[in-house]
Design a protein around this nucleic acid. Sequence first.
RNA 1: GGGCGAUUAACUCAGUGGUAGAGUGCUUCCUUCACACGGAAGAAGUCGGGGGUUCGAAUCCCUCAUCGCCCA
Length: 1041
Amino acid sequence: MPFPPRPGSVIPGPRTEKGTPMDKTFQPAEAEARIARLWEEAGAFRAGANARPGAQPFSIVIPPPNVTGSLHMGHAFNNTLQDVLARWHRMRGDDVLWQPGQDHAGIATQMVVERELARQGNEGRRELGRARFLQKVWEWKEKSGGTIIEQLKRLGASCDWSRNAFTMDPHFQRAVLEVFVRFYEEGLIYRGKRLVNWDPHFETAISDLEVENREVHGHMWHFKYPLAGGETYTYTERDADGNVTFEEVRDYISIATTRPETMLGDGAVAVHPSDARYAPIVGQLCEIPVGPKAHRRLIPIITDEYPDPNFGSGAVKITGAHDFNDYAVAQRNGIPLYTLMDTKARMRSDGLSYEQSARIASGLARLRVVPKDEELFQINLVPDDMRGLDRLEARRLVVSQIESEGLAVMAPSADGPVPFVESKTIMQPFGDRSNVVIEPMLTDQWFVDTAKIVGPAIEAVRTGATQILPERDAKTYFHWLENIEPWCISRQLWWGHQIPVWYGFDLHRGAFRDETGDDALNEIELGDLLLQDDFVGAEPRRECAVDFAAVSTRFADSLAELPHPLDHARVVEVTDARAAEEAFAQGLADYNLTQDPTKLVYPVWRDPDVLDTWFSSGLWPLGTLGWPNETEEFRKYYPTSVLVTGFDIIFFWVARMMMMDLALVGEVPFRTVYVHALVRDEKGKKMSKSLGNVLDPLDLIDEFGADAVRFTLAAMAAMGRDLRLSTQRIAGYRNFGTKLWNAHRFAEMNGVFQAPRAPGVPQATAPVNRWIIGETARVREEVDAALDSYRFDGAANALHAFVWGVVCDWYVEFSKPLLQGEDAALKAETQAVMAWVLDQCLILMHPFMPFITEDLWQSTAQRPTLLAHADWPLYRAQDLVDPGAESEMRWAISLIEGVRSARAQLNVPAGLTVPMVMTEADPAARQALARNAALIQRLARIEAPTEGAAPRGSLTVATPGATFALPLEGLIDIRAEIARMTKGADKAAKEAAALRGRLANPRFVESAAEEVVEEARENLALREAEEAQLRAALARLSELV
RNA sequence: GGGCGAUUAACUCAGUGGUAGAGUGCUUCCUUCACACGGAAGAAGUCGGGGGUUCGAAUCCCUCAUCGCCCA
């Protein structure tokens, strides 16, 4: 349904005060705000605005910026492209929805609010507690969370702002939790203890995509792990031919490490199965050379494919709880995982004493058994003197202890043997938000079993149900999805969607004894229950549902299986397991006193973690359209037409939306994904705050106007290539806007906008008018074709070439003698055509430069609609191009250029109007000259042409089919003219020779396309004629010297 | 180490088999009645090197070099 303009909306209409010319330039600062208000008051961007009856839907969901975000160049680029598409489709009458919104950015927002609290001297997050902290976050969001929305409006983004969405909106929250519950019930989500990337600053798990690996300077230490019981073996190295190059008897195995502090948690030493050097000692135990001597721990020497025999000593220590590679080795070989660090990445000080821990661990190594997680976690292998230390302090201590014990591998030096420590660059993981070193950490987390939902996402792109552009980015997509890892979706944060899982004590596991067998518990039996605590420490029972009401029903159902009176316990929610313990005990005690079963409570507590922000963002195309409700918007606009996004987000977001949304609704979230590259500075460097090379789009908008910034970004958007932005380029396109503006200023001064307007393409008789109408049709087709294939640069460049290079440079100039001439009919026709051409410029330019075009549109005529709702033209070049007019105007241009070039090169004064003699001409040239004499005379600055022989010492200008002479004897240097014409003749001769050669080749004539051969023949004829004209003129000139 | 890409005018980049293009910059001239955020004219490229396919290659293939990005 077309969206009606709001009654009373103010469209200013044409400028009324005649006699005051337009300003010489467009004033963006003033106009942009005014135009934006105009659009807003008209509701110009509401979903379906300007849609034709029965229109095709066209929908885009914005890649939601962080609620903490402010507009950077990447946003400006991304949203410019979306806006070009949205405006283009809206003008074409499609049913357009550009859905805006923001995501809640778990870590970033929590960080911002915590920083704000600290700056204001308020209580910190932990002092406030969860509920009050979240209150503060919401307050912050209300106050500061809309920044980027206002900034996007300044860019001119034509989103339906009335539908602005947020991933923490009540509706969206509900959708997220329902999806979690559904995935949980379908077995797509599981909880487990896994090694994850741990951010010690934020004390949360993060995704491996949020980890940035950087090369940093580091060290590689080489240590000796003594064999248990003083065993020895012969260590032998051989060259490629098997000759022994080194041999010695050793009582140790040499290990290299960049992280000595993790040695404390080693579970094994691994060597490659093919490594002959260590074959004699595989299966033996060796000693970790650190920790109190009395409690040295022994670990087995195992084989695994992971160690590279050619790297270091070929033997690798396995610390399964602190390294991803080691984790995999430990899993394969049943090696226990010993956690050494706490959530702040300090050496642990909880759990059992070092002495107890070391004893248990040694026993485990000897028996090769792995206990259950909870028991394993009690083992703390950090020696007493290192507990609580930062991991780097612990590293120094470990190294110095090993060295002083003489267990470092030694290397010779000028001062005798010294410990062998290599300096080398190592890859180290950093948190992309916190900038601290990330630790692999063994923790309980929730995971999406991505392997189960990845198939349709791969298939959709393979079959083309979703098209990724440029195509090469589909490879990245496939590569990632085909090697997909389980997705850790829990975060140890407060701001976000709290996981809808509640825990309660597992009373089913025989924690009580119904000794009387009467299916009810007597007082003694209940007393036993109270005293026992094995159910408290054990794995709790859990239920998943969208809210407490739903989950309490489930718990109640399971309680019903228990003996009386527990089956009547009331399910209540408490904060955590400890509170649950107290509440449960209190309930039992109260019951004991009163025998009132309603006093019994069954306390449950909710999982404190929240979901990864990308989990909710994965539902963006669904949730913003109202899903899971059956909304009209969802029916109409899903799947969305196109997603425009940066390449850096293919894994984070695009792939996850594809997986999740296909799993949920069985239909792709978008038909096309247009992946754009990065905006860099003019030297090609990534813009970053630390480099100080950031261009702020708002500063640029202030300086050059939003239109210039947008046009620059669009013109540089060659698919898949980074763009290097320079202010010079933006200034160039600001000038382009001014050029368009001044073409209108010229038109206004020449009465173009006062002339009566007829709908449709104007009828024209003058060649110049017929020609420009055809050129307009050509550029319309070019722009549409470019936008159809997402060639934003192609469309922008075509418009630039047309508006400046054709309309302003030629048509406006051509029109001058007609508009200012005597022929009233011709004048009226030219006014009508110019009015139409300029309107077409505004329409076609509008998606790229919305403000200046809307302003001109409103000020140059009484318009029935906003330009944003103007009809996009459909006329075709095949209908509007007049080949006769076109060749006539091309000929006129070539004559004007020939005259100008000759004059300039021979230093004929620019202001001088000179005579011109036509020395020869075919009928076509005669006609072209006759019909366009006025404009040719004016632009070439010549008098009315005469016909005759070339006067002595004149300049020669050759055009196709005609030769002209400018009699300027005495004014010009004959030698210079001879040189100029010789150069021209030689060039024509050279080109003709090349064409002749090609046409002389029978294989060219046989195999090349017919039109190519024909074109070559025509070109040859033209070049030969041109050469002949110039040579003839040269012959005359040479008589003069 | 694996993958992807780039290399075209001084600079930034278009250009998917048929005469090398644009913008900016540069040189000269012009304050001419739309615009100096302008106009006119001009100089400027062995399309990274080498090989191949083809009547014909910046374009397709191979190879080398250099530089980026992503992943380990």
